[in-house]
């Protein structure tokens, strides 16, 4: 397994600090790189892909420095944000050229496999300049996958794809992650990240704001109450009983049921069944309603 390791990496442009002392290790599986616009995601990906030198710190791809080291591309596939491709080539020529530049032993076979993987076989003989945005993107992904890399970096890979293509790309990333490859993709669309990966690296203003499984990150945010949506056989009685529970900070009762804000996730989830049993109530629904990536992300960028 090849890893991406960043140790105290910073990057600045004159007086502007784009990336500030980021340390992270990416291993096998799919990781989402999240952050608001201008947070430094693209700068980070440029450094990881060897196209930008860190101003400070160490950045290793599979144990080798990324900067001034073309050898890393034997293990690394890159889909950059910029869409530029050689439009005068057909998709087949473009992917085949990539296979040849990687000096693969059977470039035609590798190109065929990569094009099949992104479902571009039918359009492979057309010039890339005639493609839609999504088709171009898939062609670029095929070129990045042609040498079957152990590490794949993608900057906004779902840009321009229609829903079906997007789903297919998500499946592809899932497959790559579960087969032991290290996949990192950036996106500003939270649903995409939530669909593809539980593990996130959140960059805010150039700093690593959070790292890991976003549900775990949420649970570690003890200063923010956890919100649960609850339906039971008698919501009013349950509300009264819950008000005595120490882990409950507040609650709302309306026709849709109970909304509980709990200060301690563990204490509340242990206490709720006991209270329901004691009151003779049946809990029909218990949903942690702010454990979505969107909530976690919103909490992080406003922290």
């Amino acid at each position: 397994m090849k890893t991406v390791e960043l140790t105290n990496v910073s990057r600045w442009y004159g007086n502007v600090v784009a990336i500030n002392n980021v340390t992270m290790t990416l291993g096998s599986g799919v990781t989402g790189l999240l952050g608001p616009n201008g947070a430094g995601k693209t700068t980070l990906l440029h450094m990881m892909s060897g196209f930008l030198a860190p101003s400070q710190g160490e950045l290793l791809i599979g144990g080798e420095p990324a900067w001034r080291n073309p050898g890393i591309y034997r293990h690394l596939g890159l889909v950059s944000e910029r869409e530029a491709v050689h439009g005068f080539l057909t998709a087949w020529e473009f992917v085949l050229a990539s296979a040849k530049l990687h000096k693969l032993p059977q470039p035609e076979q590798a190109a065929r496999r990569a094009i099949e993987l992104v479902e571009m076989t039918d359009a492979q003989s057309r010039r890339i300049e005639t493609f839609s945005k999504g088709m171009r993107q898939r062609t670029r992904v095929a070129a990045a996958l042609v040498h079957d890399p152990e590490i794949l970096l993608l900057d906004e890979p779902f840009n321009g794809m229609d829903p079906r293509q997007r789903l297919h790309m998500m499946e592809l990333l899932h497959q790559m992650g579960s087969s032991g490859r290290t996949v990192l993709f950036s996106s500003h669309i939270l649903e995409e990240v939530e669909e593809v990966s539980g593990t996130v690296q959140v960059i805010v203003a150039g700093r690593l704001a959070a790292s890991g499984d976003y549900r775990t990150i949420r649970r570690l945010m003890t200063h923010r109450p956890h919100v649960f949506a609850i339906r039971s056989t008698d919501d009013r009685r349950l509300a009264v009983a819950l008000m005595h529970e120490e882990s409950v900070n507040g609650l709302d009762l309306d026709q849709g049921g109970l909304t509980v804000r709990a200060g301690d996730y563990g204490a509340f989830t242990r206490a709720l069944p006991k209270i329901a049993l004691r009151e003779g109530l049946r809990v029909r629904q218990l949903i942690p309603s702010d454990e979505s990536l969107e909530s976690v992300f919103a909490y992080l960028i406003t922290a």
Partner: peptide, 15 residues
């Protein structure tokens, strides 16, 4: 200028 050079540079080729 158009960014296509990245496709060539992201290959394990001596410069």
């Amino acid at each position: 200028d158009d960014g296509t050079v990245v496709h060539i540079l992201a290959k394990p080729l001596p410069r």
